[in-house]
Design a protein around this nucleic acid. Structure first.
Lengths: 200, 200, 200, 200
DNA sequence: AATGAATGAGCCTTCATTCAT
DNA sequence: CATGAATGAAGGCTCATTCAT
């Protein structure tokens, strides 16, 4: 007797799970239906086509699923931070610490974004969110004379790279915390108002 | 004993060139032997297998070829810069301006790195070079209290993303120069020694 | 013991109807169980397999259903005609006019006959009926020195082609009437006794 | 040591041959690449894709090949006939006799026309040719008051049906000749000018 | 050196059918 | 009666690689 039916049909969720695992372990390029079916314990790939409209549909479901998981971890931490600078730091640190909680999902997400990124609303959303954050923060005097678009692009990609490397390395939580802090420091310094040290 | 020149024999070079064009135009995923053969004006893919040990070999040759081209553009500019900070700035600015000179090669290289990056000596070399640059610069007092490894990772990836976006957008040279300066500013600010503004 | 009415149980009839619509609109080749199920508003193809022994069974039921419909239109007109020649004319004209009444059914039937024709009792029945009609008519002096079998074959197929083309073209009733008369004229002329006009 | 290379690459012709055989024996619907590959003695379907752009391409090549063969048989006989009526008769008789010479090709062609007919230039060409023949013949007084379009449609389809049935039955040449004459008689009678018997 | 045919595995998708619920 | 998940085979097609010539 099974109890899981609240989000998906059960099988759907199971297939998404298997796809995420395959992408995390073998990479996007190797994530074929047959490999995913094997991972899910299915006897044929037909089952996947039965539950998903196509490969794009399955991959989109993976992205959605992972973003739900990561959002649940990160959003509270970001919301708890007050001010533009603190929120930037919270985002970065939460993202790196997340690796300790969901390494496979993170690795899969980054691979998904790399290979099908431009179509994803979530990905472009994050970029736009960063850009907007820098723009409003700049107006509020929290950030210095940076170019919001360029900074957003460089920071999100840099963050992804750090996270991906950390995920691949399987670092200990304490090390993740340290790296997250280092990266946040770096970003905060880069975006600080010019009179950081004060004129006085 | 083969007479191949220090770069490539004629056929090899022709195939590498075609491969780069295909990757730049259609993306890594679509870069099959048959597509590359067609681009090169070859009637069969057998020719490619004959000249290269396998797909990895061809792709590695592409990376090498591109790195030679980009190196010829960037190296003089980096060498002309004096001091750790100036060299960091020179690297970033040269890399972004490079997009105006070799957009196809840049797009191809970034796609190659994304998909086969971890195996490439050149890629890891650049990362190690950055890390070492930060380490020695830090010892020399040119850089602040940053984590060399994390910073190297974040900066190279951030730079790649900016470059890739610029390459895809087909920006004008003046705009490239501006973006390169912005990004260099950002990185210089991020890595500046703590007493940047000074108490005095 | 099942209570199925002399035509079909409700569900069976609904499925047959949907199948006919799909074949008429998309053609025999595209008439898969899933397409038919969708057309019928059923959520699964299992329902079709439950009600029919197999695809052949369903298609046979379609043929039967259509023949019942067309028979209801044509039979009275044929019966109203007196004499072999008049009946041949009535059959042809009624068949062409039928296109105006049941275009979808006609299109479906012709596609079914094309693709599964040789197995159908109804189709072979019509052929045998024509052949017998020519044989008896010939004995009665109504028809000339024709080969009953060859003539039956050529005429039924020719009629089908004209009907199929008319159905695909969506002709107006008056045009259908004209074409039916033309074809009937042709067939009557072809089968007329030799001394038809005969002076001698 | 092989000698055939004048038309196709050899393999191409072999594959076309195998496809025609499969269609003739098993029907259009069963003519899958794997079945054709097996018939051709090929180890994989990939070979077919290597020589043909797709299934449509292969089938078109089959039609072309068959039309070349049948044309070589029929054209001289049609050209030898003088006058509209004689040419109509020659076409019909040659077409039926052709069954004795190339039964498989005929069966395959009819199946191909049935299933992909509307795209074929040759098929529509024959229909247009018949229609034009009736139109000019009518103007020349060779044919009676028929509708060229309807007659062309009915006759070509009727002819196909007779031919297909004859091909399936494997009739003896003498029987084919008789049937061809019967059908030609039928068509000639059907299209004769009204005053056929004449006043005299 | 170079060719082009051949290979065999793999891709995603659709199919008719079955079966536990 | 009805559902919908599951199956396994087959579909056309592309791929990197091999090999005789």
């Amino acid at each position: 007797m099974r109890a899981r039916t609240f989000t998906e049909s059960g099988r759907r969720a199971q297939i998404v799970r298997a796809a995420i695992e395959v992408i995390a372990e073998a990479g996007y390029a190797k994530a074929s239906f047959s490999r995913i079916a094997k991972q899910a314990g299915l006897s044929s790939t037909g089952m996947i086509s039965y539950h998903f409209a196509g490969k794009d549909d399955l991959l989109a479901a993976c992205v959605t699923e992972i973003e739900e998981i990561t959002g649940a971890f990160m959003q509270p931490r970001i919301d708890a931070a007050v001010g533009h600078v603190a929120q930037l730091r919270a985002f970065v640190e939460a993202n790196v610490e997340l690796v300790g909680e969901h390494p496979a999902e993170i690795r899969a997400l980054i691979d998904l974004v790399k290979n099908a990124g431009s179509q994803s609303a979530g990905v472009n959303g994050r970029l736009a969110l960063f850009e907007e954050h820098f723009r409003t923060g700049q107006a509020a005097g929290a950030f210095g004379p940076l170019d919001p678009r360029t900074t957003a692009l460089a920071f999100t990609s840099g963050l992804d790279a750090v996270v991906a490397t950390a995920a691949a390395a399987g670092l200990a939580p304490t090390e993740l915390t340290r790296i997250g802090r280092e990266l946040a420091d770096l970003y905060v310094r880069a975006t600080a108002p010019e009179s950081a040290g004060g004129s006085a």
